[in-house]
Design a protein around this nucleic acid. Structure first.
Lengths: 188, 188
DNA sequence: ACCTGAACACCGTTCAAGT
DNA sequence: ACCTGAACACCGTTCAAGT
């Protein structure tokens, strides 16, 4: 039937959207493509490679907007866009976390964060700290949110009552306060 | 043979220490106990429950030291102790992240973080943001470190050249700067 | 109180061989 | 270039039945 690598990817993305990461097996992707499981290994060396490619796909749209925006506002937007991209796909955050080994988009977004922080006058080292704190905050909190959502969907848990959007906004504001503090120390 | 719940837990912990989370299967725990896999389900409702209990075990020792310590120093220590507890066991961070649903120790440590921040004069909301930012930083960065360590152990990747201790210290310092900034706004 | 035996419905991956 | 067929070595979980 001659499926391409992209056919495999979009089939996998469809399963992810409809059922989540737990149901994203090589055998299931193969079944939806009407192909034997072993056929997938012509396109991807292993499942890990498929996940990494999928994570890159999910993050592909996250890119800096106008660079005329204030540096701290830019950081805020990047974090928000990253979070939105993760939330757009079931278990998106867990996927990106799992596919981190060798991800291109991951490195790119990290680069944008560092860039923005450096525009604020932060040292390379401080800018790295900003990237680390923001990245882990977004990924970690979104994993928690999507894990809970899946549990609730399966009836394995009731509503948590947590407001993840607010937790995210508050955590990010705190980190940005730290970043602005570092910026001032440099301008003084 | 009459194994207790604790026997199951310590056997599981042993497998975790020696081989990591990927090798921690119900069937393997059962085999080490010389018991059928189904026997484990008398002690734990499912694997998730075992992982949650295991995570609680790993975090049990993380508790605040003297409360006469300065609040920001206390936050720093708690974060450091949490990280040390995670690093003490193979894949400890991933385990805690996976066993988060219903973890008692997890809630307790979050409480200590909030407590320390409140001693600094932070509002309940700001203290929550401090807890969120620190928790996600520690868990997320330690997952990355231990995932890389496992990959290197399996020969699936070469050394990354990253200094995780330094990344952790820098990220934490940034968050604490943000926290102190919030404290000052309140004292003024 | 704790476990066996047997089964069910799955996994990822390899590899020779086919077209 | 892309896939089949068959196999290997695994999973978590359920449930009637045993002691």
């Amino acid at each position: 039937m001659a499926n391409s690598r992209d056919d495999v990817l979009s089939t996998a993305l469809g399963i992810l959207r409809r059922y989540g990461l737990a149901d994203l097996s090589m055998r299931r992707v193969a079944a939806e493509l009407d192909v034997q499981p072993s056929a997938l290994y012509w396109h991807f060396a292993n499942k890990q490679a498929l996940l990494t490619a999928l994570a890159d796909l999910v993050l592909a749209g996250v890119t800096p907007r106008s660079s005329r925006t204030r540096w701290d506002r830019q950081l805020e937007r990047l974090a928000g866009d990253l979070r939105a991209a993760l939330l757009a796909v079931t278990d998106g955050a867990e996927l990106v976390s799992a596919g981190q080994a060798g991800g291109l988009s991951t490195a790119a977004i990290g680069g944008y964060l560092v860039e923005a922080a450096r525009r604020g006058g932060l040292s390379e080292r401080d800018a790295g700290a900003v990237r680390t704190a923001i990245w882990q905050l977004v990924i970690g909190l979104t994993i928690e949110q999507q894990t809970r959502a899946q549990m609730e969907r399966l009836g394995a848990a009731g509503p948590s009552g947590r407001d993840f959007d607010r937790e995210f906004a508050d955590g990010l504001a705190l980190v940005l306060d730290g970043a602005r503090h570092r910026a001032q120390l440099r301008t003084d």
